[in-house]
Every structure is written in structure tokens, then in C-alpha cells.
Amino acid sequence: MVSANPPVIEVKDLKKHFPVKKGLLRRTVGQVYAVDGVTFTVRAGETLGLVGESGCGKTTAGRAAMRLVEPTSGSIKVEGKEIIGLSKGELRPYRRQMQIIFQDPFSSLNPRMTAGDIVGEPLLVHGVANAKERQEQVAALFARVGLRTAQMKNYPHQFSGGQRQRIGIARALALGPKLIVGDEPVSALDVSIQAQVINLLMELQAERRLSYLFISHNLAVVEHISHQIAVMYLGRIVEYADTRSIFTNAQHPYTEALLAAVPVPDPAIKRKKIVLQGDVPSPVKPPSGCHFHTRCPYAVARCKVESPPLREIAPGHQVSCHLR
């Protein structure tokens, strides 16, 4: 199933390597291959779920796609226009197109600013409204995300975690972006609040034709909100398909293992259990060949030497495995 919606962001072969510096002279002794050649597309009005274990590079991939961290190499096209190589000033109009929601609702809001000022700040920075208009727009945003407008003059500590996340969402919405990167936006919330926030995000998507890059380690959450899912392992995408294919027809052994870890609310259902051995290898010295071969139950000799390319095995379903 291939969507016909136009792409909002096309990321191609994105790499972000962090130098490892040691010693008195801070010589570079190695590289952390945090994101090592990631390609994905988010289409208008759709959600791409980016899943993987902690440390697999999904957060860095999201940040690098927005150029909040400077990518080492690759291409990022926002509505067809390349944003790699743009100066800070040239990037500013694109900042209005892409916004981010953070995981931690506590540290993502400046404790010394009122909620209204926080939500109004993007408008102030881009000079899109005078003080009175700004006030009105902020009030409208407050109402839309389910906060009372009387709370605009309150400080972040006077809100609960879920309410703070709503402030973060209102701030992200302020400039009318096309794409919102959600960096584990519900992981720090109570389960009951998670559902409310996810539903709010989905309503906003339907209403404003927003696109989300939804980063999470929780497949159950991602399944609910995503149209497509990309599974990351150690800096690379290992499987990329629409949500239904991932859940019904997972091809990569790592995806299988992730799915096996999702709890099922019916004790009668017996599933094949796949428990991965060991930890994620260090991204400083990733394994040779297929990054996953050290933990893969099916690994053969070839996996140790040759890195499998991401191949399309069905329309819109890509997997990087020699055995499929």
C-alpha cells in the first residue's frame, strides 16, 4: 500500500557521527555512529513511527532531520527543497514548518516564563503578530489543546505533567507547522494521560493535516497513531513498512523480537517467544556486516561479512536482511 500524499520531509542517507575525544589535546580517537545512513519520508497528514531500543539513534535521527543537531552527511528535503547547507538565517523560514515536542514535560518548559509567554514565544520570534493578536492566538491555542485560557498567566510548575505536555503541543502548533517531530512525547506520562495526549495529537492531525515523525520505544503506542513504521537498530533502519504490514507480516528478525515483547491482553494466546540475548552493541564499534548478527537467532556466515541493503520485498515494504 503506497500512499499518494505528497511528501513533507524526505530524508536520505542521513548520518550523524559524534567524535570520541580523548586525552589532553582532545584528539579524535573514534566515532559514535549514532545515525548511520537513514532514509525515510513523511507524507502530508500521515505519521511515521520511528521505533527502536534506547540508544539505537532514533532521537538523534529526529533531531538531525530538523537540523537541531548538525548532520554529518545526507540530504533533507522539506517540501522538495534541500535544507542541508542552508545558513541559520536561511533555515529560519523552515523552522516554522517543523516543530518538536519533547519527552520530558518538566525540563522542556522554561520555569521562569508563564505558560502564555511560552506558547506565544514562537510568534514573537517570527514577528507574525502584534501583542494583542498574539494574546488572542495563544488563547485560541490554549483552548484547542484543552487548557483554560485563565491558565495563561500561570507558571509551568502549576500544571500537571499532562497539562505541561499540552503546553508543549500548543507551542509546537503556534507557527502552524506542517511537520511535528514527537520525541517520545508520551513516554513520561501516566498511561491514562498517554491516551488523552495521543488522541489530541490525532485530532490535530485530522484537523490541520499535520505530519508526525513519532519517535517511541513503545510499539503499542506507535501502532495506534502511525500510518507507517520504521524500525531502527544501531543507527540504521532495518524494516520500513505501513503499520499493518509491520504488525501482521514482520520480516526482519529484530522486528519479530520487538513484536514478541508487546504484551497481549489475552492470556489464552500463546505466541512464539523470541528473547534477544545480550545488549545492543556499542555504536562506537558496530558489528561487521549486518549490525544485528550478534543477536540474531537466524544469523548465517554471510551476515557477519556483508551488510544487507534495505530492499523492497513488497510494494512499500522494505527490509534489510539477507534471509528474506
Binding site: 516554522r96 519533547f102 519527552q103 520530558d104 525540563s107 522542556s108 522554561n110 514562537p122
Partner: peptide, 17 residues
């Protein structure tokens, strides 16, 4: 390193500001 500083960067705020 706080996310609210990153958020300010994400809305295109200058470093001095």
C-alpha cells in the same frame, strides 16, 4: 542542554536571545 533551550532553537531563536 535543557530541552526548553532546544525548543527555543527549534523555533528559530538566535543564540544571543
Amino acid at each position: 542542554e535543557q530541552p526548553f533551550v532546544e525548543a527555543a532553537r527549534a523555533i528559530g531563536m538566535g543564540e544571543v536571545r
